[in-house]
Amino acid sequence: MAEIIIKTENLSYVYSAGTPYEHRAIDNINIEIEKGSFVGLIGHTGSGKSTLIQHLNGLIKPTSGKVFVGGENLWANPKDIRKFRFKVGLVFQYPEHQLFEETVRKDIAFGPKNMGLSDEEIEERVLEAAKHTGLTADYLEKSPFELSGGEKRRVAIAGVLAMKPEVLILDEPTAGLDPKGREFILSEIKAYHENTGATVILVSHSMEDVARFASHVLIMNHSKAVMYGETREIFKRVDELCEMGLEVPQISRVFAKLREKGCEVPESVLTVAEAKDAVLKLLEKGGKDNA
């Protein structure tokens, strides 16, 4: 079995405890994430996804329960919490709103600078992160405020990548982007995952994206982690997911219906390419039967 990089034990968090606004955002979460996996985190708005991911790098202190990163308890020594922030890079929703420096170069360097690296190391990391996010050299001297929305977002993501986190968490990194921008960001995340072997957790509302990229899926509903497993296994459970009001990838839905109708197609079909193969195979077989 592969090494476990992130583990939570009975993790719970209550907002505004003791006031009329009290709200249990996450409730008794127990998950184990293997090193090097690509996890898609799915759930409705308000299901506790954002609260959960902020626990994983120690931005929120749990009301009860524990978080382990690489086997170390996050809150064993609260003074050391910053080192986990560099280990677990978190890209928030609409990260372009956090840009503040005069130039793109300085903004990307903010994280590495906080790590206390040498100037050469910082420069190297900035260039590398810029390359990862498709920002050419002439961008580096521009002010982040004169860029377009999609470019700003790339700068913000580069700012986190420059810390070279072992675990990269992204909260809906493609929200509000056009299809081209979405595709670009997703493929650069995929590339980072493959090139560095980092663990990635992607919060997304798009089942298609999760089906295409994720090796594992974590489903949250009403503050609880209800399912965790390999993507293929999870998307087999079409009925349960629909009951929660969540979707499955369109193509999986089509094939689930086909199976209901008695067609002999495989149980889990996630992408259009897989669907094509399955249909061709079926036609071939059907052709032989008829002959």
């Binding site: 790098n57 922030r85 890209v91 928030f92 990260p95 709103h97 956090q98 994280g111 790590m115």
Partner: peptide
């Protein structure tokens, strides 16, 4: 939200003297 985002990039807002703390507010 912004504080959380900058903390996620390792911003240190608790330690340091007055000048360092004031500088930490810029981001």
């Amino acid at each position: 939200k912004i504080m959380a985002a900058q903390k996620a990039r390792g911003a240190d807002m608790e330690s340091g003297n007055v000048i360092q703390k004031a500088k930490a507010l810029i981001p």
